[in-house]
């Protein structure tokens, strides 16, 4: 199916629940409300004309005012791709977990929780996966500051007696 057809199929089915598309993305990107994410995800997997059977990636983007949870879906049969986006609150980001639909989401959601602190509600084992269990803070948030030490190990910049110079290529 082409992007337009996928979008139309979703809009016909869910109407208002599809909040819109993201035109800055080169892939078809659909914004959905977090309450309807599970329902839409299940439809995406089970509908024979969509059949998104492979979850590629769950990821996050910190836009400083909100955090996006991004799900990339693939269909091995129809060879099309869909991106689902859910906006989460920046202070206490929460999002429904899609593990019950695709088991592949398990580790990806743990990673996104680890890096952005998004609480995936309904996830069977939401613990840190890459960072240590007692790590503080969420490294991929834009306002994250590196801790001065971890269990008595000072960070390199601290050892050199200065905080890291702010190098910002986007400045």
């Amino acid at each position: 199916m082409t992007s337009e057809e996928i979008l139309k199929r979703l809009q016909d089915q869910f109407g208002e629940a599809i909040l819109g598309t993201d035109d800055s993305s080169l892939n078809l990107t659909v914004k959905v409300a977090s309450e309807t994410l599970l329902e839409i995800s299940r439809f995406c997997r089970d509908d024979s004309s969509l059949s998104f059977d492979l979850l590629s990636l769950v990821s996050g983007v910190d836009w400083t005012d909100r955090i996006e949870s991004v799900i990339h879906l693939d269909s091995t049969a129809h060879k099309h791709h869909l991106v689902l986006k859910v906006d989460c609150d920046h202070e206490s980001p929460r999002c429904p977990s899609v593990v019950e639909i695709w088991n592949a989401a398990d580790w990806h959601e743990r990673e996104t929780y680890d890096m952005f602190g998004i609480i995936y509600e309904g996830h069977p084992n939401l613990v840190r996966i890459l960072c240590a269990e007692d790590w503080e803070g969420y490294p991929l948030r834009k306002d994250y500051l590196m801790p001065d030490e971890y269990h008595g190990i000072p960070n390199d910049f601290q050892q050199a007696g200065k905080r890291p110079q702010k190098y910002n290529p986007r400045g």
């Binding site: 993305s25 080169l26 590629s56 990636l57 983007v61």
Partner: peptide, 25 residues
Amino acid sequence: GESYLKVENPRGELGYYIVSDGKKG
């Protein structure tokens, strides 16, 4: 903008999800 691109790595689907805000990186 943003894009997701996948290639067939020897180990499987290697995907890069890249978000740009128009700056240098």
